[in-house]
Design a protein around this nucleic acid. Structure first.
Lengths: 141, 141
DNA sequence: TTCACTGCAAATGATTTGCAAAGCA
DNA sequence: TGCTTTGCAAATCATTTGCAGTGAA
């Protein structure tokens, strides 16, 4: 259903974006990029994206989904969010931001407010800060 | 809590601590608790603890290590820290605190400074905050 | 004695990889 | 065309589980 019509020029734009990131715009990468980037920011697992591709009538193999997610991440198009020891989430919002994580439902949500972390000490010598992750774990009690 | 006559009567104290947490002080739980709690705060993986037990001349099975770690966590003696999608870390410091995570070496370090997170919005209705995790990812660039 | 706990090995679930076939430049 | 990428299935890796034997109370 998300096929072709939705946003004209979409496919060309997606291809361009992939190419700009140094990735050859193959069919499956285009499809996955479309699912990921055409509808606002998203948080997906490999399994979910795989399912969506299947439902979109264009099945790709799970292995390809994993490969693409990592390639997109390495290319700076995605950010990996680590909240569960057993599953990886990928976030299309690559700006610095924080998350709510619903432990009961396994759902990840962006925190849109400007969160400020103060009082952080200097990192150990010889190292530099790569990223500061803030995860607010919530429960439906 | 870790105060008092720290080193003496270690085994008896460990047994008591386990019992107080509702866990029967079996041989292997005592050993693991000793490795975990007798030498200041620690961050361990199941594999590391398993190795230490073996080196201590008292091998326990990996499955038992996993079971014990989770039982300790459920009993409130440990806290699980999630920084890698592929491996679980357990922290003997159960107070609210933050971590440095060295992505190159896979090493976890407590941040002792008083870190303050401000600007967090209310959690979605129907949920309550369980915990706020802050992980400062560092790299030896 | 009883029942929770342990150990092993097999099961699981997410992720990865090897290699032949297919697609992009 | 040549070199990348895909797809499948088998391989891995950390972790969990089933079940018979062991040990704490």
């Amino acid at each position: 259903m998300a096929n072709g019509k939705r946003a004209q020029g979409g496919t060309a734009r997606i291809s361009e974006r992939l190419r700009a990131a140094g990735l050859r715009p193959t069919q499956q990468r285009r499809l996955l990029a479309e699912l990921l980037f055409q509808h606002g920011h998203r948080h997906v697992t490999a399994e979910l994206l795989h399912l969506e591709a299947k439902e979109a009538g264009y099945p790709v193999s799970l292995a390809t989904v994993y490969n693409a997610l990592h390639q997109f991440t390495d290319a700076g198009l995605l950010q990996q969010v680590i909240v569960e020891p057993s599953q990886s989430y990928f976030d299309t919002n690559i700006d610095s931001h924080q998350h709510f994580y619903d432990e009961d439902e396994g759902r990840l949500t962006d925190i849109s407010a400007a969160v400020c972390v103060s009082g952080l000490p200097q990192p150990p010598k010889g190292t530099k800060v790569q990223r500061v992750d803030v995860v607010v774990r919530i429960r439906r009690s």
